[in-house]
Deep mutational scan, measured.
Amino acid sequence: KRPMNAFMVWSRGQRRKMAQENPKMHNSEISKRLGAEWKLLSETEKRPFIDEAKRLRALHMKEHPDYK
């Protein structure tokens, strides 16, 4: 399984929150809205998620050196 990218790290928490606030909303609609919100974030707002994704990628490479 591939490590999560920055968007996936961010959206994991956001998706849960949005699903709780809008229980009838379909997952595909939640995904569209999350994608639009992510695009509006500044580089500074994205930075912690980018850093976490880098950390996860490095850990994955260490644990699975033969993974392509």
Rank of each mutant, 00 (worst) to 15 (best):
Asn22Ile: 06
Ala58Tyr: 07
Arg12Phe: 14
Leu40Ala: 13
Arg12Val: 13
Ala53Lys: 00
Lys54Trp: 04
Trp10Pro: 02
Pro48Ser: 02
Gln20Val: 06
Thr44Trp: 09
His26Pro: 13
Ala6Thr: 01
Ile30Pro: 01
Asn27Asp: 12
Ile50Ala: 10
Lys39Gly: 08
Trp10His: 00
Thr44Cys: 10
Ala53Tyr: 01
Glu43Val: 05
His64Leu: 13
Lys32Pro: 02
Leu34Ser: 00
Phe7His: 00
Ala58His: 11
Leu56Asn: 10
Pro65Met: 13
Trp38Gln: 05
Asn22Lys: 03
Lys1Leu: 12
Arg47Gly: 08
Ile50Pro: 04
Lys46Ile: 01
Lys24Cys: 08
Phe7Val: 02
Arg55Thr: 05
Pro3Ile: 05
Arg47Asn: 04
Thr44Asp: 13
Ile30Asp: 02
Asp66Pro: 14
Lys1Glu: 11
Leu56Ile: 10
Phe49Asp: 02
Met18Tyr: 12
Asn5Phe: 03
Lys46Glu: 03
Val9Lys: 00
Lys32Gly: 06
Trp10Gln: 00
Arg16Met: 13
Met61Lys: 15
Arg2Thr: 12
Arg57Val: 07
Lys32Ala: 13
Lys24Gln: 14
Arg16Asn: 13
Glu63Met: 10
Glu29Pro: 01
Met61Glu: 14
Lys39His: 09
Met61Trp: 09
Glu29Leu: 03
Ala19Lys: 11
Leu59Met: 05
Leu59Gln: 11
Val9Pro: 00
Arg55Met: 07
Ala6Met: 00
Asp51Glu: 12
Ala58Ile: 08
Asn22Ala: 04
Lys24Phe: 11
Ser28Glu: 13
Glu21Cys: 01
Arg12His: 15
Leu41Gln: 00
Lys17Val: 08
Met61Asn: 10
Glu29Asn: 07
His60Trp: 11
Leu56Pro: 03
Lys17Ile: 10
Arg16Phe: 09
Lys24Thr: 11
Asp51Thr: 14
Lys62Trp: 08
Leu59Lys: 07
Ser42Gln: 04
Met61Cys: 12
Glu43Met: 07
Glu21Gly: 03
Ser28Cys: 10
Ala53Glu: 06
Glu37Arg: 05
Glu43Ile: 09
Asp66Asn: 11
His60Ile: 08
His60Met: 14
Asn22Thr: 04
Lys68Ala: 12
Phe49Thr: 00
Gly13Trp: 07
Glu52Thr: 01
Lys62Ala: 13
Asn22Leu: 04
Lys17Arg: 11
Asn27Met: 13
Glu43Asp: 13
Leu34Ala: 08
Pro48Trp: 03
Leu56Met: 08
Met8Phe: 10
Gly35Cys: 13
Met4Pro: 14
Met25Trp: 06
Val9Ser: 02
Lys39Tyr: 03
His60Tyr: 11
Gln14Thr: 06
Glu37Ser: 07
Ser42Trp: 00
Lys32His: 07
Glu52Ile: 03
Leu40Pro: 01
Arg47Cys: 02
Glu43Ala: 09
Asn27Cys: 08
Arg12Glu: 15
Leu41Pro: 00
Asn5Met: 02
Ala58Pro: 08
Phe7Ile: 01
Leu40Gly: 10
Trp10Ile: 01
Pro3Glu: 15
Glu63Phe: 04
Thr44Lys: 13
Leu40His: 08
Glu29Asp: 10
Asp51Gly: 03
Lys32Phe: 09
His64Asn: 13
Lys39Ser: 10
Ala58Ser: 13
Ala53Val: 01
Lys46Thr: 02
Glu29Cys: 02
Lys24Tyr: 05
Gln20Trp: 04
Pro48Val: 04
Leu56Glu: 10
Leu41Ile: 04
Arg15Gln: 11
Ser28Met: 09
Lys32Tyr: 05
Ser11Gly: 04
Glu45Phe: 04
Ala6Lys: 00
Ser42Gly: 06
Ile30Thr: 05
Gln14Cys: 10
Ser28Tyr: 15
Ala53Trp: 01
Ala53His: 02
Met4Ser: 07
Glu45Tyr: 06
Pro48Cys: 03
Glu52Gly: 00
Asn27Trp: 10
Ala19Gln: 14
Ala19Leu: 11
Leu41Cys: 03
His64Ser: 14
Glu63Thr: 09
Arg15Ser: 10
Lys68Thr: 12
Arg15Val: 09
Ser28Arg: 06
Arg15Lys: 05
Leu41Tyr: 03
Lys54Gly: 06
Lys32Met: 09
Gly35Asp: 15
Lys54Ile: 07
Arg2Asn: 08
Glu21Ile: 03
Trp10Cys: 01
Arg2Pro: 08
Met18Phe: 08
Asn27Leu: 08
Leu41Thr: 02
His26Ala: 13
Gln20Leu: 11
Glu29Ile: 03
Glu37Gly: 06
Met4Phe: 05
Phe7Asn: 00
His64Arg: 12
Ala19Pro: 02
Lys1Asn: 13
Asn5Ala: 03
Met18Lys: 03
Thr44Glu: 13
Ile50Ser: 04
Lys39Thr: 07
Arg55Asp: 06
Glu37Met: 13
Pro3Arg: 08
Leu40Cys: 12
Glu37Phe: 02
Gly35Val: 15
Leu59Trp: 10
Arg57Asp: 14
Tyr67Lys: 15
Gln20Gly: 06
Tyr67Gln: 13
Ala19Tyr: 07
Phe7Ala: 00
Glu43His: 09
Arg15Gly: 08
Lys54Val: 08
Ser31Leu: 08
Ala6His: 01
Lys68Ile: 07
Lys62Glu: 14
Asn27Gly: 12
Pro23Ser: 05
Arg47Met: 12
Asn22Tyr: 08
Trp10Thr: 03
Lys68Gly: 13
Glu52Phe: 00
Pro23Gly: 06
Lys24Gly: 15
Pro23Asp: 03
Ile30Tyr: 04
Lys1Pro: 06
Leu59Ala: 12
Ser31Tyr: 11
Lys32Ser: 11
Ile30Met: 11
Pro48Asn: 00
Leu40Gln: 14
Arg55Trp: 04
Lys39Phe: 06
Pro65Ile: 09
Glu52Arg: 00
Lys1Asp: 15
Asp51Arg: 03
Phe49Val: 02
Lys32Thr: 09
Pro48Ala: 02
Pro3Ser: 11
Arg57Asn: 15
Leu41His: 01
Leu56Phe: 04
Phe7Pro: 00
Gln14Leu: 06
Ala6Trp: 00
Leu40Arg: 12
Trp10Tyr: 00
Arg16Val: 14
Met8Gln: 13
Ala53Asn: 03
His60Asn: 14
His64Ala: 13
Leu34Gly: 03
Arg55Lys: 11
Asp66Tyr: 06
Gly13Met: 11
Arg16Gly: 11
Asp66Ile: 06
Asp51Asn: 07
Trp38Lys: 04
Arg57Glu: 12
Gly13Ala: 12
Thr44Ser: 13
Lys32Trp: 06
His60Ser: 14
Gly35Ile: 13
Ser28Thr: 13
Arg15Thr: 13
Trp38Asp: 03
Lys62Phe: 07
Met25Lys: 03
Leu40Glu: 11
Tyr67Val: 14
Lys46Trp: 00
Gln20Asn: 13
Gly35Pro: 05
Glu52Ala: 03
Lys46Ala: 01
Ala36Asn: 15
Lys46Phe: 00
Glu63Gln: 10
Gly13Phe: 14
Leu40Thr: 10
Arg16Glu: 15
Arg16Trp: 09
Leu59Tyr: 09
Phe49Ile: 01
Asn5Pro: 01
Gly35Gln: 15
Gln14Met: 06
Ser42Thr: 11
Ser11Asp: 06
